Measured scan of single mutants.
Amino acid sequence: MFYPNSPQTSPQLTQIPYGQQYAMMQRQIQQPYHPFATTEPQARLYPYHYQGPIQQEQGGFITQQSTAASPQYVQMRVTPVDQSIMSGYPNQTANGSSSSSFNYNIHPQQQQQQQQQQQQLRHHAMPVGSVPLQDDRYRKQLIVNYLAPDVTSTDLHELFSRFGELDGARIIYDKQTNMSKGYGFVYFCHAEDAKEAVERMSGYEFHGKWLKVGYSTNPLNIVPSNSSPYVHAGSRGAAG
């Protein structure tokens, strides 16, 4: 039997160049792979992502010199942007860049009308829970959420009447099932009393439920100042 490094198959040491006398086997001759043993700084910083320098080929596509990437890492192929796409944008300079302001050559009167329309939209648009300043009635009506099913309009009136005089209180019921929808409205005579009720009743436990109280901004629920107070009856038909 002959071994790869046996004296019968191995040459004389004098015939082997210096430095390879003890590297006779194939696994010894093959050098191990060192990912950080390279002179390129990109490979030292990113050993798993770097795959060699990027070269520009004919046709405008950018390719990489090395083989496919590892399945664990996804390499994105980048193509140059066609400058003709950006030619339609206004205020574009000769080098292809555009300024931040756009001039669509709008007539001054049209621009003024658009600004007025935007101001009107901001004036009428009102986020949930906010209180408008032009109508004091919005500051007097509250919406009470997360009410228990057994709470009546009379219970709601008695709960909030300790903060001040009320114009009314009612629970909203479903017309088909005649069941409470879980929320109601309270109408105060003074805005200061309503503000105190919002601050003190939010998070209050009532009939096993934690109440959420806020201003009601729905104009359909506003009680006119010259109208008669609501009837605080315990029956659902009268309260709904």
Rank of each mutant, 00 (worst) to 15 (best):
H190C: 04
H232Y: 08
I106D: 03
E165W: 13
P32G: 11
A194F: 03
P7T: 11
I16C: 09
S100C: 13
L147C: 14
Q112K: 06
P35K: 02
A37S: 11
M24S: 04
V78I: 13
P90N: 11
Q134V: 08
Y187M: 00
A43V: 14
Y204F: 09
A94W: 09
Y146N: 00
F188I: 02
G214D: 02
R122P: 07
M25W: 06
P224C: 07
L156I: 13
A125W: 14
Q8M: 12
Q72P: 07
A169G: 04
Y138V: 02
G237P: 04
Q42A: 09
E57L: 15
Y48C: 13
Q72I: 15
Y187E: 00
G184E: 02
F188G: 01
A37Y: 15
L133P: 07
Q116D: 06
R27T: 11
Q42W: 14
N218P: 00
I222H: 08
D136W: 02
I171G: 02
A37W: 15
Q111W: 15
S227A: 09
T67G: 09
L13E: 04
M179N: 15
Y3S: 05
M25N: 05
Q134Y: 10
S84F: 15
S66A: 14
Q115L: 13
A23F: 15
R200Y: 14
Q64N: 10
P47I: 15
R122H: 04
G168T: 06
V128L: 07
F206I: 01
G96D: 06
I54M: 10
T67H: 12
Y146M: 00
H190E: 03
Y73R: 03
E57C: 14
S235V: 03
D135R: 02
S161Q: 06
W210H: 04
F206G: 01
D167G: 02
F160N: 01
Q113C: 07
D155A: 09
Y22M: 12
S66V: 12
E199G: 08
S216V: 00
Y33T: 10
H49G: 14
M201D: 00
Y18A: 03
E40A: 11
N105V: 14
K212I: 00
Q26A: 05
S70D: 07
S227F: 14
P41G: 12
K175F: 08
L220K: 15
E199Y: 05
G184H: 02
A238V: 09
A191Y: 06
Q12I: 07
Q112V: 12
G184L: 00
A233C: 03
R122C: 13
Q42T: 08
Q51S: 10
A197F: 07
Q20K: 04
I62M: 14
T14W: 14
N5V: 12
L156W: 02
G234Y: 03
Y173I: 10
N226C: 10
Y46V: 04
R122N: 13
Y173F: 10
Y46L: 06
Y73I: 10
T154Y: 15
Q112G: 13
G208F: 00
G88T: 06
G237D: 02
Q56P: 07
Y215E: 00
Y215M: 01
P41N: 02
P132Y: 15
Q92T: 12
T177N: 04
Q114T: 06
A37F: 15
P80W: 15
A125I: 13
Y48S: 07
P224K: 12
P71D: 06
S100V: 15
Q28D: 15
Q111M: 06
Y46C: 08
Q58D: 12
R44L: 15
T217W: 02
Y138T: 05
S227D: 05
Q119N: 13
R139C: 07
G129C: 03
Y215C: 00
V131W: 09
P108Q: 12
N221P: 13
I172W: 00
Q64T: 12
N221C: 08
F160K: 01
Q141H: 01
